[in-house]
Design a protein around this nucleic acid. Structure first.
Length: 306
DNA sequence: CCGGTACAATAGGCTCGTCG
DNA sequence: CGACGAGCCTATTGTACCGG
């Protein structure tokens, strides 16, 4: 339920810019959601800044609105803007508007607009916040086995056998071992965590996955990553970054039309003993990490996308 | 050049629902 | 009940930048 409190003057200026930016998209307050409140917030913030700063933010906003409208016209968002939102990190407002949950920590939009054709577009005003990173899943071992058609569990079973050979006093049941590992931290850290058993499990599973993944075609690999490692509907609604700059009568703005997250030129690399890193066009896309749910050698194996 | 610090990345862990 | 799966959270580590 994130309503982030802003306090420093930098974000005050940014807020003023964002609101003016929204305003100039249609030269109107009427189509703002909670318009009165937005205007009140603008006044309150403007009063905390000196006049020059307000003027600069306002003038930049004008140029930003202009280039944004041009961009929209040329990039499939033609038509008129009929509704605008200034969520100020209030995810609820956006979720309500678009009809599905979104996380504004991931999608850095500052202003959301809807066209008369029903399309939503997020606008990030000279984005300082939000990573734009899509959310990842944390699949379990069974899911990975199923989706890749691999048998991986034996790596764990073998390692457990080895471990029990070395420490016959340990219980055979996972949950009982977990209790012991948790209470006897010293033993756990010395003999289990980071041990050859864990290493064996991680490496065995990771290497099998790697061997399988490199046999896939680019398309298959991308489908796999998209379908099983990224949350459905990632980075929706789409957004663009609009940067305004300049002072003293000279203002400019440009659009950073973020690359659509795409799986082009996918390459794979093993990292450490537990990870496969996937690059898209040479840039890190995600890490698939093998890990234990909690206590090593006593809880279930899962993965995490990062 | 240095330590400090604020933030990002990472590793590790909890909870809770489901299933056999 | 025991195991598993998946989302979420937190503690720790790494890093990039900043003022002195």
């Amino acid at each position: 339920m994130g309503v982030k409190v802003t306090s420093n003057s930098q974000s005050v200026g940014a807020d003023v810019n964002e609101i003016f930016f929204g305003y100039y998209l249609t030269n109107s307050w009427d189509d703002f959601k909670d318009s009165d409140k937005v205007q009140t917030e603008l006044d309150e913030r403007s009063n905390r800044l000196d006049d020059d700063e307000v003027k600069n933010q306002k003038e930049r906003a004008k140029v930003m609105a202009k280039v944004t409208l041009e961009w929209m016209e040329n990039n499939g968002y033609d038509g008129n803007i009929v509704k605008k939102w200034w969520p100020k990190q209030n995810s609820g407002m956006i979720s309500q508007a678009i009809g599905y949950e979104i996380d504004l920590d991931k999608n850095p939009l500052d202003i959301l607009v809807q066209t008369d054709k029903g399309k939503f577009l997020g606008l990030s005003a000279k984005s300082t916040k939000g990573s734009g990173k899509p959310p990842f899943k944390n699949p379990g071992l069974g899911t990975i086995e199923l989706t890749l058609g691999l048998k991986l569990k034996h790596h764990y079973d073998d390692a457990v056998k080895e471990m029990l050979k070395e420490f016959p006093e340990l219980p055979k049941i996972n949950s009982e071992r977990k209790i012991i590992f948790k209470s006897d931290t010293e033993f756990y850290e010395k003999n289990i965590q980071g041990s050859k058993f864990v290493q064996h499990v991680f490496e065995g599973i990771r290497d099998d996955m790697y061997d399988k993944l490199i046999t896939l075609s680019q398309e298959e690999l991308w489908d796999y990553v998209k379908d099983y490692w990224m949350d459905a509907g990632f980075l929706q609604p789409p957004y663009i970054i609009v940067t305004g700059r300049g002072t003293d009568g000279k203002y400019a703005a440009d659009i950073n039309d973020r690359d659509e997250l795409s799986g082009e030129n996918l390459t794979l690399q093993k990292i450490g003993c537990d990870k496969i890193r996937i690059f898209s066009k040479g840039e890190k896309l995600l890490d698939m990490r093998v890990k234990f749910e909690s206590q090593h050698m006593a809880t279930s194996i899962k993965f995490s996308g990062e």
